[in-house]
């Protein structure tokens, strides 16, 4: 069992077309395992893992794994609101999943408002690229165009493989660090009635403590 002590909890949501690999990505991230076959997600599933950001602060990531299937779309919409970060997931071997990314992003922005989440663009199934074409797998989304899209929209971009584990950790740490940085700069705050960021079991007054610390640091600078 993981060490249950953490300083913050961030709620991240994974969105994207069905079968792009959201659940597999999360399974690898939280379990270190990869399943060749898995049932499609119903509504939303939950995963959790504690990571550490650069200064050693322990962050519990509560990960909302939404169903990509069209029929659940009306339901998953309800789940966006309390997220502080959103991973826009596409399949590098599925062109249309990448083309739907702007729609997913707009949807997320609309439902998470007035909060501004941290977005990351995550390409999945990178392990299929470069192998022979027997599986019919072929890169349909180049790294360059994905990166370009990410830059235009101010997102982080990373290509991953839930099979080999490549960049899986990085994708989540990237978002967590960015959220944490925004807490440090005061852009994000713990708010009543919004569960995007919560303080952990460890520190009931964690937020105050941190704000105080940040202020003192600033004052010494000036």
């Amino acid at each position: 069992m993981v060490d249950p002590i953490f300083d913050y909890q961030f709620r991240l949501i994974l969105i994207g077309d069905s079968t792009v690999g959201k659940s597999s990505l999360l399974k690898y991230f939280t379990d270190g395992k990869f399943a060749e076959l898995s049932d499609p997600t119903v509504g939303v599933d939950f995963f959790a893992r504690i990571i550490e950001v650069q200064d050693g602060t322990r962050i519990k990531l509560q990960l909302w794994d939404t169903a990509g299937q069209e029929r659940f779309r009306s339901i998953t919409k309800s789940y966006y609101r309390n997220s502080v970060g959103a991973l826009l997931v596409y399949d590098v071997c599925n062109r249309s999943s990448f083309e739907h990314i702007p729609l997913w992003m707009m949807e997320a922005k609309r439902h998470i408002e007035p909060h501004r989440p941290v977005f990351a663009l995550v390409g999945c199934k990178i392990d299929l690229v470069g192998t022979d074409n027997k599986n019919g797998a072929r890169r349909e989304v180049t790294c360059e165009e994905a990166r370009m899209f990410a830059e235009e929209n101010g997102l982080h971009h990373v290509e991953t493989s839930a099979k080999t584990g490549l960049n899986v950790e990085e994708a989540f740490v990237l978002v967590a660090q960015e959220v944490y940085n925004r807490i440090q700069t005061g852009e994000y705050k713990v708010e009543d009635g919004w569960d995007g960021i919560k303080t952990g079991f460890n520190r009931p007054n964690g937020m105050d403590f941190n704000l105080l610390e940040a202020e003192t640091v600033q004052s010494t600078c000036c």
């Binding site: 249950p4 509504g43 939950f46 959790a48 309390n82």
Partner: peptide
């Protein structure tokens, strides 16, 4: 820890 709370919360949202 057993995800009970978050399921309850999601259910509440629905």
């Amino acid at each position: 820890d057993f995800e009970g709370l978050v399921h309850l919360e999601a259910l509440e949202m629905l």
